[in-house]
Amino acid sequence: MTPLLSVQGITKRYGAHIGCADVSFDLYPGEVMGIVGESGSGKSTLLNCMAGHLTPDAGQVVFDTRTNGPRDTITMSEPERRMLGRTDWAFVHQHARDGLRMGVSAGGNVGERLMAVGERNYGDIRDKATDWLGRVEIDASRVDDRPTTFSGGMQQRLQIARNLVTGPRLVFMDEPTGGLDVSVQARLLDLLRGLVRDMGLSAIIVTHDLAVVRLLADRLMVMKSGRVVEAGLTDQVLDDPQHAYSQLLVSSVLQV
């Protein structure tokens, strides 16, 4: 089986400072990978390198494209990479405001990706947008409202709908539950878990919240100072951490 995404030796430096160093892993179709670590451990840098927002100094990010098979997304041309970015890839930002157009209605936000890939029938676009709002538990009557009138949790769900409408195969998520209160987090996680399972999505989730990866991720990488210090199955890493930093991380979680 070909991996959907194969990352090899990704290194990104900011001058003398290391963003992330020599990260390699394979992600198979339908698999959810969690990346955890403290602030400044390089997990967002790694995610941005993989998603094409940053250019790494070394390494390869090989994606199994629909038409041409495995391709290195770092050396492919920019139009191709941007095309991937609006079809097979999705990127969920930590702050919904970064991923949404706040001046455009919810329906327009969801429809943007459809129009970007050439959909030109208003009725169809609107039907799909309404359908997706339903799937992320936003009432269909809100389709013409702007995201500014939405709560934080709704904005985050809208951002997810907007990203998944073109049926991507790989979703990058940067702290998808950050800044939400716990009950809203729980609903969002529930929703994400359902969508990931139903659509057979592969996902890479960056977070510092161990509960998120426990619920969503099949596999886990623990990062510290730009390097991967431990990797393995989620339950294995969380229940029996081997590296000193992983042990610290797991033991830092408050038990209620």
């Binding site: 941007r82 609006r86 157009r101 455009v104 209605s105 329906g107 327009g108 429809g111 943007e112 990706r113 129009m115 970007a116 890939v117 030109r120 208003y122 676009i125 609107r126 389709v143 013409d144």
Partner: peptide
């Protein structure tokens, strides 16, 4: 990449 132009027209129709 002109999808955004249609977003404007979409907003017109929806409003």
């Amino acid at each position: 990449e002109y999808g955004l132009m249609h977003v404007k027209l979409y907003e017109d129709i929806s409003r």
